Simulated scan of single mutants.
Amino acid sequence: MSITAPASEVQKNFGAYHDRALVEPVRVTRYGRETVYIISADAYRSLKQAQRQAIASADLSDDEVKLIEDAEIPAEHRYSLDDLAE
């Protein structure tokens, strides 16, 4: 869960929102539009670590390889080489 606060309020009470961000993300809006989130350093590191994780194909189980082989592209996301010429 996250809380939402306008940027002007965050600017006035940064310390309080800083402390709140240690527990949960703070969604900051400007003119009613979401612009940034304030998150803890631990949450940021966790997100970056998850983004960096890669798995070698040799590390996949036979079941995982089979799932990938059997996967199909949804019709609305398919294209042919003819589509590229357009």
Rank of each mutant, 00 (worst) to 15 (best):
A50E: 14
D82A: 12
Q51S: 06
A21E: 05
E34F: 13
S8M: 09
R27T: 09
A58Q: 15
Q51K: 11
A75F: 09
A85G: 01
R45L: 07
T29W: 00
E9G: 01
R45P: 05
I3F: 00
A71Q: 08
V10H: 02
S8G: 05
Y37V: 10
F14E: 07
H18I: 09
A75N: 07
G15E: 13
S80E: 12
A16N: 10
P74A: 04
R27G: 03
P74W: 04
D59I: 08
H18Q: 11
K12Q: 09
E72P: 05
D70G: 01
T35M: 14
V36E: 00
V10P: 05
H77K: 10
A5F: 04
L60S: 02
R20E: 10
G32V: 00
D83K: 08
S46T: 12
E86C: 07
A75E: 14
E69K: 11
T35V: 15
E69W: 09
M1E: 09
Y44A: 08
A71D: 09
K48N: 09
D82R: 15
L67T: 11
D70P: 10
M1K: 02
A43S: 10
R20K: 13
S2H: 15
A85M: 14
Q49H: 14
A85P: 05
P25C: 00
P74D: 01
E86L: 13
A71L: 12
R45M: 06
A54N: 13
